[in-house]
Every structure is written in structure tokens, then in C-alpha cells.
């Protein structure tokens, strides 16, 4: 029953979000694009990094690959096919990288993925300079930003669906065991390598698609623009802030952070960095395990107390269902 209600609610929210650009105007749509983009990135990131606890900084490598594929192929192939090719390229890279790196643990994996993003950028640059002889590519598309938004929204919904299905499947259970203790997982007969690889591939393909879908927003594509390491960092921070281990965690982290960045850059353009940094540190100190867990702990505490006035409705609803 709860699942049905959940899906119905999700459907309503999705429909609401889908018609939003019709009422919001260009900036609102732009905001939704940015937000949806980061929610998708953070969720895709958490899909792999949450359960496995492998902190990946390769987000922008895949994001950039997607954007570049779009820029290279847009003129010569039909749009859906370009997306398919981008996904395929992302998949192949993810499998190659996954096969070679997933045995690295801890910070080595972090650094490796960062290095990977830089390596891809250098190689793309070198290829463009020496083989094609042009560096910037122009990407003129005929559709407006609403179309980009709808695609992103669809991808975002698909990401949540995939994450939800994984969470309920055998793989999800396996992942929980891997996350808790990899040795135990191996003893339970779980093929940890295969599970991790599959997850890494799915997550990477989604990230690649986000890059491919968003690229037409920028008209001009060059490696420095699409392989901007900030993307990796922001994704990671957003997912961790919300709580990477939960389905809705990345969303709860990405939306407020995104809006906060937006607000800061508008109201404190000169002191943006300082405030952002201080906030960041405050978040780590106050919400070390993510907003969701913090909120849940708070809720649990609330529930233990006898319901009083305002909080009664909240607590009551929880218990009923």
C-alpha cells in the first residue's frame, strides 16, 4: 500500500515539475535544469558510492565524455542516437576503468578517479589539437531549454527508479553487506567485484547522459568547460550532505545546496567563497552523517516524547502508516 501511495505521490510531484517551466519563465527553468542536473548526478553518484563507500571523483570525466560526444556527433546523427552513443561510450569507459580500479581501496580510489578525470581531459585536448586541429566545438540546437529540462527530469526519475529497484533487489542486499563488511560479503558467496562493477557502470552511464543532455545549453564546448573538476566536488558534497546511503539523501542534499550557491553568488558575489567554505565546514561539524539521518534521529527523539501540540500531527502520521 505504501509503495502505491509513494508512487502516486512521486507521479504527482513529477507531473508538477514537468509543467513547471510553462509557468516559471527562463530563469526558473534554468534553475530547475541546474537543480535536476545535480540531483541526478548526486543520486547516480550515491548509487555506486553510497553502498560501496568508494568515493569517486570521476563524475566529471563521464559528464565531460557525454557532453563531448554530443558536441562531436550532434550534426551528423539524429539526436536520440547521439544519446545512445554517448551512453555506450560512457559504459565502455566505465567497464574499462571499473575492471582495472575497483580493487583499489580508500583514498587511492579517490585519487585515481580524480587523476582519471584529468587524464581524459588531457587526452581529449591532445586529440582535438593534433588530430582534428580545432579545440572549441559549436553546438547549435534547435530546441529550447524546456526540452533539455524534460529530458533531465525523465533521466532523474529513471535514476530514482533504478536506485529504488536496486535497493529492493538481491543486489541491494548484497550491497548492504559489502558496505558493512566486504570480507563477510565474500564469505556469503557474493561476487563483490561483479556487483560493484555493474553498479559503477550504471552510475557512470547516467552521469554520461547528464553531460550529453546538458551540453546544448552552452553552445560552445571545449575541454576546460566540460571537464571542470568543480562538478565532481559539488556532486560529492551534495550526496554526502543529504546522506549517500539513502534513496532520497542526494536529493535532500542537492536541492538546498544548489539554491544556497545560487543565493550566495547573487547576494555576496565578492564573499561567496568565504561564506561557502564556512558553511561547508559547519555542515561537516553539525551534520556529519547527512541531513536525512540527522532529521531521522531528531524525529525518533520526538517520537519518544509524548506528542505535544504541533509535533503531534507529524509524529502521528508516521506511526499510523
Amino acid at each position: 500500500m505504501r509503495t502505491v501511495i509513494g508512487f502516486a505521490l512521486a507521479g504527482v510531484v513529477l507531473a508538477g515539475l514537468a509543467v513547471a517551466p510553462l509557468y516559471l519563465g527562463p530563469y526558473g527553468t534554468g534553475l530547475l535544469i541546474g537543480m535536476t542536473g545535480y540531483v541526478t548526478l548526486a543520486s547516480a553518484w550515491a548509487m555506486f558510492s553510497g553502498p560501496t563507500r568508494f568515493v569517486s571523483l570521476a563524475t566529471v570525466a563521464f559528464f565531460g565524455i557525454g557532453a563531448y560526444t554530443m558536441a562531436v556527433l550532434y550534426e551528423s546523427l539524429p539526436y536520440p542516437l547521439v544519446l545512445a552513443v554517448a551512453a555506450l561510450v560512457g559504459l565502455v569507459v566505465a567497464l574499462v576503468v571499473g575492471l582495472s580500479t575497483l580493487r583499489l581501496a580508500g583514498v587511492y580510489f579517490v585519487i585515481f578517479t580524480f587523476g582519471l578525470a584529468e587524464l581524459v581531459r588531457q587526452l581529449v585536448t591532445w586529440y582535438e589539437v593534433n588530430v582534428t586541429g580545432t579545440l572549441g566545438r559549436y553546438l547549435f540546437v534547435s530546441f529550447g531549454s524546456e526540452v533539455i529540462y524534460w529530458q533531465l527530469l525523465g533521466l532523474c526519475a529513471a535514476t530514482f527508479l533504478i536506485a529504488w529497484v536496486i535497493g529492493r533487489s538481491r543486489i541491494g542486499l548484497a550491497l548492504k553487506v559489502i558496505g558493512d563488511d566486504e570480507v563477510v560479503a565474500v564469505h556469503c558467496g557474493i561476487s563483490t567485484a561483479r556487483v560493484k562493477l555493474a553498479l559503477f557502470a550504471v552510475s557512470s552511464v547516467i552521469i554520461t547522459l547528464v553531460g550529453a543532455i546538458q551540453a546544448p545549453r552552452w553552445t560552445y564546448i571545449e575541454p576546460l568547460i566540460v571537464f571542470n573538476p568543480t562538478v565532481s566536488f559539488l556532486t560529492l558534497i551534495m550526496a554526502l550532505l543529504g546522506g549517500a546511503g539513502r534513496l532520497w539523501g542526494p536529493l535532500v542534499g542537492a536541492v538546498p545546496l544548489f539554491l544556497l550557491f545560487e543565493w550566495l553568488s547573487a547576494n555576496f558575489p565578492d564573499h561567496y567563497s568565504i561564506i561557502l567554505g564556512l558553511l561547508f565546514m559547519a555542515i561537516v561539524f553539525v551534520l556529519p552523517k547527512g541531513v536525512l539521518e540527522f532529521a531521522e534521529t531528531g524525529l525518533r527523539r520526538l517520537r519518544r516524547r509524548p506528542p505535544q501540540d504541533g509535533s503531534a500531527t507529524v509524529a502521528g502520521k508516521e506511526v499510523e502508516g
Binding site: Y272, S273, G277, L279, M281, V284
Partner: peptide
Amino acid sequence: GLLFVIQG
């Protein structure tokens, strides 16, 4: 976060 503060 510290990076941003120093940079800022």
C-alpha cells in the same frame, strides 16, 4: 571548505 575560505 577551508580551501574556499582561504581562497575567498
